[in-house]
Design a protein around this nucleic acid. Structure first.
Length: 391
RNA sequence: GGCGGGGUUCCGGAGCGGUCAAACGGGCGUGGCUGUAAACCACGUGGCUCUGCCUUCGCAGGUUCGAAUCCUGCCCCCGCUACCA
C-alpha cells in the first residue's frame, strides 16, 4: 500500500462510531508494518449473522490494506461456562464441539474475510494460567472499574445477580489482547468497555496499547432491537437464498437506511420507492452471501409465491398415515409441518389450512385418502407440502 | 452467620383455598389490510382419542370434598447486615 497513514486512518475510521484514542490509529499505521487486528469469537454461538458482517467487513478493509486479522477462538472461556442471568450454569461444551463450532464460524466469516490473511488462535493457549498468573492479571483492575460497565451497573442497581465469573470475562478478553499483542481491536459499540479495558491491561503488562474501533450495531429484522440470535431477529449468512430475500423484505422501512449504510456501505437510494429499495437490498445481500444467480432466482420465487400467490417451483413431499380408512388432518399437519395436533386444530379453525387451494373447514377433521394422494397442503402463506401416500 | 424479599405458562408479571390451563403486557402464530411492508384491527398461543379429558404454577411430602394459593422439609435466587464487642 502506498497510501499515506493519514489517508488510511481516515478511510478505516470513516464509518466507525469510535476510533480511540484520537489519532492513535494513524500513529499505529505510521509504524509501517502490518498491524495485528484482533477479533474474539464466541464458539458457543457458531452462527454468523448479518450483524456480525458489519465488523467483518471492517476487518476485511484492514486485510485489503495489508494488515493481519487475528481471530481468537474463546475456547477456554467457553469451556468454563458462562452463568449469566439467573439460569444456573450453561451446559459446558466439549473440546470437540468447540472445535467444530470454531471451524464453521471461520468458514462463515470467510464469506467476508480473506482467508489467507487470518491468524487463528485459541485463548486456551494462554488463559489456562497458574493462580499466580491470575493474581497478576486481576491486580490490574478494580471492582469499581468493572462495575462501571453499563450492563453491570444496571444489573447491580436493579438487584440482579452478577457472578464473579462474569466480572472476570472482560479481564480474560483483555488478557487476550496482551497475549496476541493486538494493535487494534474491533467490536460493536456494545464492546467499547471491554475494548478499552484491554488497553488498561496491556499498559499494566508493559505492552503498547491497542487502538479501539467500534462499529455501529445493526438492527434486526424487527427494526428495533439489535440483531441477535437470542432475540430471533437475525438473518444468518448461511441461510437459504429465499429466506434471506424474504426476511429482508420484512424489515420495517424505518430501518432500511441503516441496513444500507452498515451492510452495503451506501446511502439509501432516494430515487427508488421504499418497495423497490427493499427489493434491491434483498437482492444485493443474496448476491453477496450466495451468488448473482441465486439472487435472481430468489427474487423470482418471491414474486411467484407472495406477489402472484402461485405455488413454489419446488415443494417438499410428505407422506400421510391412513387409520381406519381415513386421514386425521391434525395428525397430518403436525407430522408434516411440526407443532402439536392441538395447534393444527387451531390453525384449521382459524382458516389457515388449504388443500389444493381450497380452504378446509374446522370440521374437516378426517379426509378420505383418495383425495390426498398428490394433493398440496398449505399452512399459512408460506408453508407447502405435496402429499404422497406411503407405499 | 443474622434479618428481609423471591421462585407462576416463551419472556415480563398478576393471582394468594373452589368460578385457574391461570389476569395484563411483550413476543410469536393465523386472518384482514398491504409493498408477504410497517402501523392498525380480529382471533389464537400446555397436550389429547376435544361440547370432554389429561398434565402444569422450584422439588418432595402433608392438610382439605377441593391447593398455584395453607402447613412441613429441601433446593435455588436477590438485597441488607456482619465494625466498635
Amino acid at each position: 500500500m502506498t497510501t499515506s497513514a493519514a489517508a488510511d486512518a481516515r478511510f478505516l475510521g470513516r464509518d466507525a462510531i469510535d476510533c480511540l484514542p484520537e489519532g492513535a490509529l494513524e500513529r499505529k499505521l505510521e509504524l509501517g508494518r502490518p498491524l495485528r487486528v484482533k477479533l474474539g469469537l464466541d464458539p458457543t454461538a457458531p452462527d454468523v449473522h448479518l450483524g456480525h458482517t458489519v465488523v467483518l467487513r471492517k476487518l476485511r478493509e484492514f486485510q485489503d490494506r495489508g494488515h493481519v486479522v487475528v481471530l481468537i477462538i474463546g475456547d477456554y472461556t467457553a469451556r468454563v461456562g458462562d452463568p449469566s442471568g439467573r439460569s444456573s450454569t450453561r451446559p459446558q461444551l466439549s473440546g470437540a464441539e468447540i472445535d467444530a463450532n470454531a471451524r464453521t464460524y471461520v468458514d462463515q466469516a470467510a464469506k467476508v474475510l480473506d482467508r489467507d490473511r487470518i491468524e487463528l488462535r485459541h485463548n486456551s493457549e494462554w488463559l489456562n494460567m497458574s493462580m499466580e498468573g491470575l493474581f497478576a492479571l486481576t491486580r490490574t483492575t478494580t471492582v469499581a472499574q468493572l462495575l462501571e460497565r453499563d450492563d453491570f451497573a444496571k444489573r447491580y442497581a436493579g438487584r440482579e445477580p452478577i457472578s464473579l465469573l462474569e466480572l472476570l470475562y472482560p479481564m480474560m478478553q483483555a488478557y487476550d489482547s496482551v497475549a496476541v499483542r493486538a494493535d487494534v481491536e474491533l467490536g460493536g459499540t456494545d464492546q467499547k468497555f471491554n475494548l478499552l479495558l484491554g488497553r488498561d491491561v496491556q499498559r499494566a503488562y508493559g505492552i503498547d496499547e491497542q487502538v479501539v474501533l467500534t462499529m455501529p450495531i445493526l438492527p434486526g429484522v424487527d427494526g428495533e432491537r439489535k440483531m441477535s440470535k437470542s432475540l430471533g431477529n437475525q438473518i444468518g449468512v448461511t441461510e437459504p437464498a429465499q429466506e434471506i430475500y424474504g426476511r429482508t423484505l420484512r424489515l420495517p422501512d424505518a430501518a432500511m437506511a441503516s441496513w444500507y449504510e452498515l451492510l452495503l456501505g451506501e446511502p439509501l437510494p432516494v430515487e427508488l420507492t421504499p418497495r423497490d429499495a427493499k427489493h434491491a437490498l434483498a437482492h444485493r445481500l443474496v448476491e453477496r452471501l450466495h451468488s448473482a444467480g441465486a439472487a435472481v432466482a430468489a427474487a423470482a420465487h418471491f414474486d411467484r409465491v407472495f406477489v402472484q400467490g402461485d405455488l413454489p417451483e419446488q415443494i417438499e413431499e410428505a407422506s400421510f398415515d391412513v387409520v381406519d380408512g381415513t386421514v386425521h388432518v391434525p395428525a397430518l399437519i403436525a407430522a408434516s409441518f411440526g407443532g402439536s395436533r392441538s395447534d393444527a386444530r387451531r390453525k384449521l379453525a382459524a382458516g389457515a389450512i388449504k388443500l389444493d387451494g381450497v380452504l378446509l373447514r374446522p370440521d374437516d377433521l378426517d379426509l378420505a385418502p383418495e383425495r390426498l394422494d398428490g394433493a398440496i397442503v398449505q399452512v399459512g402463506k408460506r408453508q407447502f407440502r405435496r402429499l404422497r401416500r406411503p407405499v
